[in-house]
Amino acid sequence: MQHPFQEFQEFVAEDYPLAPLTWFRIGGPAAYFAKPHTVENLRAVLRRAAEANIPVKMLGGGTNVLVRDQGTDALVVHMDSPFFSDVAIEGETITAGAAVPLTALISQAARAGLAGLEVLTGIPGTVGGALRGNAGSRQGAIGPFVGGVDVLDSSFEVQQRERDDLSFVDRESNLDEPVILSARFELTREEPEAVVRRMRKIWIVKKENQPYGHQSSGLMFKNPSPDISAGALIDQAGLKGTRHGGAEVSDRHANFVIAHPGAKAEDVLHLIDQIQQRVWQQFGYELELQLQVW
């Protein structure tokens, strides 16, 4: 039977493996997978998905996504470089496409002598994902630097969301449109060397407390409150190093689960259940997933 995206064969594939595009490196395929080259491509394929009643999922850097072993019956849209990764600097403003890796955005800002975004050093992923989840750490979050965001709305029209329309709290934003296209960041001038020094300091602290770079891993839970850390609760519950199948609670930071070679998504999901139950029983906190499960 002809599939609903037949006319978009140039940038839509069927039964596409997702594991290599996520940090866990596990999970099944996407029923349909699109890498649009233009906003027009993007619009057309989203319209077709809506007509065919096919759910749509947006994939950025794959840092906070766990794909189930059977995969997903959705259309997965991957806004990739170079088509959605322009960066332009004008004065103290940087405009960046949704597919720009946060690491690239931070380093370009630092080189240009623009301060602010270095608080995000060590946070993986792309601009689009960071905006939607108001990415941040103890040092600060992306929200305060956002001057405006271009989105595709539910009618697939390009809209500009200005600063006054936007709300960023904890690890959430009110950016609920189907697609984030690009964002404008308002920064402050500072000597590049001073910005880079701060980046290095933050990086050193981050690396001491996260799984090793070669490990396939993901951050699991939101902190219950600004002063209560999910990682500390999991650690206090005695779960560091707990293993199920090929999945293990990191012994460096208990809010990360590592997927060892041969791990399955169901192994990670089993650990998630175990962690949630134990933390609830011992401390009365209901840990909410930061990870998206597809």
Rank of each mutant, 00 (worst) to 15 (best):
244 H>K: 07
262 G>C: 09
287 L>P: 03
136 G>E: 08
262 G>H: 04
201 K>E: 15
247 A>G: 13
181 L>V: 08
160 Q>K: 11
31 A>P: 04
274 Q>D: 09
230 A>F: 06
173 S>G: 06
56 V>G: 00
260 H>I: 04
104 A>W: 01
236 Q>P: 00
62 G>P: 08
202 I>Q: 02
115 A>W: 04
256 F>E: 02
170 D>L: 13
66 L>P: 06
127 V>G: 01
271 L>T: 02
150 D>Y: 06
18 L>A: 03
89 I>R: 00
11 F>W: 04
275 I>L: 05
138 R>D: 14
277 Q>L: 14
27 G>F: 03
109 A>Q: 00
16 Y>P: 04
207 K>C: 12
92 E>D: 13
163 R>A: 15
271 L>R: 00
290 Q>P: 05
202 I>N: 01
83 F>P: 00
279 V>I: 10
167 S>L: 14
93 T>Q: 09
29 P>D: 07
37 H>T: 14
213 G>A: 15
21 L>F: 15
228 I>T: 15
183 A>Q: 01
285 Y>M: 04
221 F>A: 05
7 E>W: 07
252 R>M: 11
35 K>G: 02
236 Q>I: 04
286 E>H: 13
284 G>C: 09
75 L>N: 03
239 L>E: 01
16 Y>S: 14
277 Q>H: 11
243 R>F: 07
49 A>M: 10
255 N>S: 11
163 R>F: 12
276 Q>V: 15
126 T>K: 02
264 K>Q: 13
74 A>C: 12
135 A>T: 11
142 I>D: 03
213 G>V: 12
68 R>G: 12
242 T>K: 03
148 G>R: 09
107 S>Y: 10
58 M>P: 02
33 F>H: 07
150 D>K: 12
47 R>L: 14
218 G>F: 05
146 V>S: 02
33 F>W: 10
202 I>K: 01
53 N>P: 00
128 G>S: 11
246 G>L: 06
132 R>P: 05
156 F>S: 01
205 V>I: 13
138 R>V: 15
97 G>F: 00
63 T>S: 14
30 A>S: 10
78 H>G: 05
28 G>K: 00
22 T>D: 03
87 V>L: 12
82 P>H: 02
213 G>I: 12
267 D>T: 07
203 W>Y: 15
105 L>W: 06
216 S>M: 10
104 A>D: 13
154 S>T: 14
169 V>H: 05
38 T>Y: 09
169 V>M: 05
218 G>Y: 02
98 A>K: 04
291 L>K: 03
263 A>C: 08
128 G>D: 08
155 S>F: 13
141 A>K: 05
111 R>G: 13
252 R>Q: 14
